[in-house]
Amino acid sequence: MNIKMKVGLFIPCYVDQFYPNAAIATLQLLEKLGVNVTYPANQTCCGQPMANSGFEHLTSGCNTLFMANFKEFDYIVAPSGSCVLHIKEHIHTPNHEDDKNISGKIYELTEFLTDVLKVTHLTSNFPHRVGLHQSCHGQRGLHISQMSELVEAPYSKPQTLLNMVQNIEMITLKRKDECCGFGGTFCVTEEAVSAKMGKDRVLDHENNGAEYITGVDLSCLMHLEGILKRKNSKTKVIHIAEILNAS
């Protein structure tokens, strides 16, 4: 890719507020790889929490803001499959050409690394046992990895990158791509099922000896972290950017 290309860093609201380290790792990783990356200060949220709750009609403010912040970039990169998918599928502004343009140039971090930067090696080192949580929107929405439902050849962009990390040991899960149960406002409106799904997912990682659960979406990881902490588990969550940027 042309090194002069301008990349806009899109940091979803909850990452900005609760997980700044994942955002810092994303920024540093992209900078290490020679990307000209800028973070527009006036960004807020993609609008997904409202839209998934049936209030897409209230997201025009978010959409306009997003367009204003990111229209001029060649690429938009975010450490979140879910928010990227939302923008890709649901950004609606008065100018449909602009919408299409945004949809075509927004990337989740790992797909940007494998598909645009075509990264083949990394200098990171992470000597731990790690379980990969396949977040649904990244996987089934953005197709960053093949889903178990389809009779198709398997692949995984996040896994390809994790394989480049030195001394990392990946664990195998019993259910390799089951939803964690976060689901946006589902996590509070359907508390019982959401928590049970999270507990089951956590147990799969723990039973297979994960020290860390990683993934491309902190929304899922935040939910899993909440459950891990409640049970005083030794297993921790970490965003994939932090592993790929680890030295």
């Binding site: 997980y19 955002a23 509070v188």
Partner: peptide
């Protein structure tokens, strides 16, 4: 309902936006 079966994330001292302002 979040807190019924899940703990909260640890609040960081600064948001990424604030960090970026200082560092970049």
């Amino acid at each position: 309902p979040w807190y019924k079966q899940r703990d909260m994330p640890e609040p960081p001292s600064a948001s990424f936006g604030e960090w970026y302002k200082k560092n970049r």
